[in-house]
Simulated assay, not measured.
Amino acid sequence: MNRICIVFLVCLGFAVEGRGQDHPLGTPFPIRDAKKILFLGNSITYAGQYVALFESFLITAFPASEIETINLGLPSETVSGLSEDGHAEGAFVRPWLFSRLDNVTKRIKPDVVFACYGMNDGIYQPFSESNFQRYKEGMIGLYTKLKAAEVKRIVFITPSVHEDPIRGLKGYNLVLNRYAQWLLDQRRERNWEVIDIHFPMQDYLMEKKKREPNFKLAEDGIHPGLEGHRLIAECIIPYFDDTFATKDFLAACLDNTSYYAHLYKLLEERQEIVKNAWLTYTGHERPGLPVGKPLDKAKKESMRIQNKIQKLQKTLL
Rank of each mutant, 00 (worst) to 15 (best):
L254Q: 01
D111H: 13
K299W: 07
T45N: 06
Y259K: 08
K208A: 14
D296Q: 10
S302V: 08
N120S: 13
A233V: 04
R94W: 12
F54K: 01
H223E: 01
A251I: 04
P165K: 08
A277P: 00
T280Q: 10
G171V: 09
A261E: 09
I44Q: 08
R153L: 12
K106W: 08
L101A: 02
L53T: 00
R3N: 14
K35Y: 02
A52R: 01
V151H: 05
I273N: 08
T105Q: 11
F54L: 03
F156Q: 08
S130E: 13
G141M: 06
K300N: 11
L250E: 02
E193F: 04
Q202I: 13
G141N: 14
T257I: 10
G288M: 13
V93M: 05
Y117L: 03
S65A: 15
Y179S: 01
T69Q: 05
G138C: 07
H262Y: 14
R3K: 13
W182M: 08
H262A: 15
G138V: 01
F114T: 00
E269R: 09
V291W: 06
E207F: 09
L74R: 07
G221W: 12
V51C: 08
N191H: 14
W278I: 07
D220N: 13
K311R: 14
L295C: 06
T282S: 05
I154L: 14
A245D: 07
I59E: 09
E137K: 13
Q49W: 09
I197Q: 04
Y204E: 03
I154Q: 10
V291N: 11
E234A: 14
L38Q: 01
K145T: 15
Y117S: 02
Y117E: 02
L82W: 00
A61C: 08
P159E: 02
R3M: 15
Q125N: 11
D121S: 04
L82D: 00
N256C: 05
Y179P: 01
Q181C: 13
V291Y: 11
P63G: 07
K314V: 05
E285Y: 07
L279C: 06
T282L: 03
L38Y: 04
K209T: 00
M201C: 03
I6W: 11
G48T: 08
M201K: 00
G86D: 09
G171I: 06
Y204T: 05
V161S: 07
Y172R: 11
A115V: 12
Y264Q: 06
V161K: 12
S160A: 12
A148E: 15
I157F: 06
C116G: 03
D203K: 14
S128K: 10
D203G: 09
F244I: 12
S160G: 12
K208D: 07
Q49L: 04
I67W: 10
N177G: 02
A261Y: 15
H262Q: 15
K314L: 14
V151P: 03
L184M: 15
L289N: 04
H229K: 07
Q21V: 15
P30S: 11
R270V: 00
R100F: 09
